[in-house]
Nucleic acid binder design. Structure first.
Lengths: 174, 174
DNA sequence: GCTGAAAATTATATGTT
DNA sequence: AACATATAATTTTCAGC
């Protein structure tokens, strides 16, 4: 498993959240370590699976995706679950899929070209075996998108579990 | 505005979606242009705002965020909108906020430490002026997260608007 | 807008504490 | 684990097309 995360790891994570293409040299400057040290830590964070990968944020509208929507799907659970999953993975217009509690068993985040393509998409979904109903909410605008993972908050989260060793704690151990 | 996007731009976008830290040298290989050309195109894509930035995907659980939830909020619209926005931007636990149609005026994607911190968060929300009700769905698991923006699909989207000029079209113009 | 080649910067590998 | 040094790779700059 992951071993321990210290504040430097968290700062690395925070910086990469703000700018995923930041250079190791800059990162080294930010956290106050040498480049090889930062490089090694970054490798470990990826090997541990704490950092899963790097992506990009795009302006979807400019790429012709004028419609975003949340679609709540109610599926006749167990029996059709496997085929549902396969369909979900195959549909490029489904950007995210969550299994959730509450009304409906799944929430799909959908991105598509126009109302016509959305209509086609919805009738496709409704034809999948086990799909009992759907309920669609259009996204009018996105008011917030939090990229940064604050080192401070993560630190608080992890202190409970003693996964994290802060610098001060380290110092005080002989 | 943005000028024109060709298939090479879309391939750059697709590659960066798969790996946001891909090197210019690799990118140049993928799209079949020289490194300076790719570098220039990347700059333009960022200046145009088509590429908004680069981030990282993390394993939230390993960082102590054990709870993710969608919270539908119904707010007494116009009058309290501004203060609502301010609150939303201030809360680090709100990762995303969408204005939507359907039941409730907004959907919040929330990430927090445990049920206790969620409970605190929900009572905080409910105390904001104008918040009439909330409805929370826990995320049990995320089944899909689409990082890649397929060049093929974007091409289809944009062809309608003639924003995109394909290589073949370019060739055929004198 | 693209290229090749020089210059500058950055990343990797190795050995040491 | 972190560092310094040396080496390798990458990115940037720029003249020329």
């Amino acid at each position: 498993m992951s071993g321990h995360l210290d504040l430097i790891d968290l700062k690395i994570i925070e910086s990469l959240g703000e700018n995923g293409r930041i250079r190791l040299s800059e990162l080294a400057e930010v956290v106050g370590l040498s480049i090889p040290s930062v490089s090694e830590r970054l490798d470990k964070l990826q090997k541990n699976g704490i950092i899963k990968g790097f992506t990009m944020e795009v302006d979807e509208r400019q790429l012709g995706f004028d419609i975003q929507a949340f679609v709540r799907v109610r599926i006749d659970s167990s029996r059709h679950y496997k085929s549902f999953m396969e369909h979900v993975l195959n549909e490029d217009e489904i950007m995210e899929c969550f299994s959730v509690t509450g009304e409906g068993s799944h929430i799909l985040k959908v991105m598509t070209h126009n109302t016509s393509s959305l209509e086609k998409f919805l009738s496709r979904i409704q034809s999948w075996p086990g799909v009992l109903s759907t309920n669609t909410s259009f996204v009018l605008s996105q008011l917030k998108k939090n990229k940064k993972i604050s080192a401070g908050i993560v630190r608080n989260n992890l202190q409970d579990r003693q996964v994290l060793i802060t610098f001060d704690e380290k110092k005080s151990r002989k």
